[in-house]
Design a protein around this nucleic acid. Sequence first.
DNA 1: GTCTATACGGCGATAGAC
DNA 2: GTCTATCGCCGTATAGAC
Lengths: 206, 206
Amino acid sequence: MATARRVGTETSKTRAQMLDAVERLMVDKGYAAITYRAVAAEVGVTSGNVQYYFPTLDDLLVATIRRRTDQSLDRLLNMLQARPNQPLRVLWEFSNDETVAALTMELSALGHHRPSVSAEIRNHTRRLRDVQLAALAAAPHVNRDDAVPAPARLFLLSGIPKLVRMEEDFDVDTGHAEIVALVEAYLDTVEPAAAAPRAPGRRTRR
Amino acid sequence: MATARRVGTETSKTRAQMLDAVERLMVDKGYAAITYRAVAAEVGVTSGNVQYYFPTLDDLLVATIRRRTDQSLDRLLNMLQARPNQPLRVLWEFSNDETVAALTMELSALGHHRPSVSAEIRNHTRRLRDVQLAALAAAPHVNRDDAVPAPARLFLLSGIPKLVRMEEDFDVDTGHAEIVALVEAYLDTVEPAAAAPRAPGRRTRR
DNA sequence: GTCTATACGGCGATAGAC
DNA sequence: GTCTATCGCCGTATAGAC
């Protein structure tokens, strides 16, 4: 606070490795395993070095989340720009690609006990949702049918992949194939895939 | 394992208080806060006493999950029995009442790092799902319309409340009101509320 | 600007004394 | 059955080497 402690630059390669280590540890051993010593051991530096870049654990956690969510938002914006006439399909594929259930779960759980983490997640979720809503609003064909309001459609398109991944982690898959088929049939009707052919290397998972 | 250690009885009142304390701690401070000392302090006993009832932390965690999931399954069975002609409505209300997002999140995250917890969650989720599928299969009106297969309907009815609660925790509510309204309108069509009026004290939350 | 060495107070977990 | 000593790891702070 009052003490003007020195902090490493954001462009440091070592710093980036530390953030990578945090993500790995989070997925492999859970949020409780994120300690200066554990991160340092992963990267192969001293714990003091980690502290040099991240004076408090909150700094380390928030930086990890921010880096990932910034990347994520950029990716969505690029996808939307590349296929402006297929917002629903883009949102669906984005949510399917993006969802790393284990990491999401750890961060959500951690958010309940770390206000700084909670604020970061809230902030990102809202920015993301605003972009998504704007994309839907800009597409005329989306609002033709009022049976399902746009916000509800967004809720389902981004939420279903999340649920599916969560259940998959516990080897439960009841209704997964059916619900995915339903959504994709709906997308075929509203946004025919042929309208803007996707690149051959397309992937919808991970 | 090989050591035949003494363990307290399952009917002990102290033991039940310990399980209560675990749930409280889990929600308030996260799974990392579940320690013998913390639980003991909550209940007002010594940590050795907690160890007497639960020789390992895994024992303590699994017992906590099992007690809660057994209660939960009983509750669902009672609801289904009381209103045999409204399985969809029962599933919807059950999922809305049941979902304590914070606890669910902690346990899911913890499951990724504790095989015993993972097994317990998997086991319960499957038993629950079997009961739910059976309830749907037994109701003739559920399968009249094939647009949405029964497993997909179950997925949505039990998953949507979960998603809603998760997002609420981060003050995000985009599309929530809309999607809930859609589901309830659907329920009104398929299972008119008048068919078996609910008690006036009905609550659909918490 | 980057990194290391070291110290302190605190706490969970374990074993073993009583 | 109950309590306690001890151990090791934790976050954090600081001083200083390169």
